[in-house]
């Protein structure tokens, strides 16, 4: 465990050593605000809750999280620091976890900086703050899921653009796997258990369940196990590249 900390710290400070962190946070907050107020008609709805706000999170993460995850490994490979990092006496899983946690914490900070909208809704009415808290928890877990997918994909290439595009596509499939568009495609030929399995991978379904205020252990386990799965894929992909 003590090995994770230096890796985490280096990765986390790297965000703030370049304009990346500030640009990302500004765009993140601006996009969140724009969608909530202008497209989601937050004021006009006249409802004291943040469901409109949270409703846009999966779609924003779809592009913003791969923008963070694309550099996670691809940049190390491209600049040659991968060789340095992997010859330091740190177990590979600890390096993978340290870098992942740094990126997740960074996204968490960006998410926490949306707090003015929480203040706004409390000033305007009396929302159920428990539901809002659940929404934030769900959003953070979902971001972690997207990030793990993006990290695994980033470890397979040294090209950040490829990492970004492939991550967006894979994240998109996970987001909409519960939607009729996807399910109809399978319904024609796949047996029911397969269809149920595919629809259960939907980020949207699980996120909507949590953000409606019902923190079901199964939804949490979903995001958690998906993250663990993709971080394991991340470790395996790096190991495979070692042996190639």
């Amino acid at each position: 465990m003590s090995m994770i900390w230096p890796i985490f710290k280096r990765e986390f400070t790297a965000y703030f050593a370049t304009p990346l962190a500030y640009v990302f946070i500004v765009i993140f907050l601006f996009a969140m605000g724009a969608f909530t107020f202008f497209i989601g008609h937050f004021y006009e709805n006249g409802i004291a809750d943040l469901s409109v706000f949270f409703g846009y999170h999966p779609w924003l993460y779809l592009f913003l999280v791969p923008a963070i995850s694309m550099r996670l490994w691809a940049e190390e490979r491209h600049s040659g620091t991968m060789e340095l990092l992997l010859t330091l006496p740190v177990p590979l899983w600890a390096t993978v976890l340290g870098k992942y946690l740094a990126a997740w914490t960074f996204i968490g900070i960006a998410l926490a900086l949306t707090f003015p909208i929480w203040l706004t809704v409390n000033f305007l009415g009396s929302p159920d703050n428990g539901v809002i808290l659940a929404g934030y928890i769900g959003s953070f877990l979902m971001a972690g899921g997207y990030l793990a997918i993006g990290a695994a994909i980033s470890s397979a290439t040294d090209n950040q653009v490829i990492a970004f595009v492939v991550s967006v596509v894979v994240c998109f499939l996970f987001t909409i796997s519960g939607a009729p568009l996807v399910l109809d495609f399978f319904r024609a030929w796949a047996p029911l258990p397969v269809i149920t399995a595919i629809s259960s991978f939907s980020f949207l379904t699980h996120f909507i369940a949590i953000s409606s205020g019902v923190i079901d252990v199964r939804d949490i386990i979903f995001f958690f196990s998906l993250t663990v799965l993709f971080l394991s894929v991340n470790v395996v992909l790096i190991d495979l590249r070692k042996a190639s």
């Binding site: 600049s79 040659g80 060789e83 340095l84 010859t87």
Partner: peptide
Amino acid sequence: AIGYLPEGAPAYGDM
């Protein structure tokens, strides 16, 4: 037990 200087001496440029 190893100290290693990889080819091209890679390091994190922003540090």
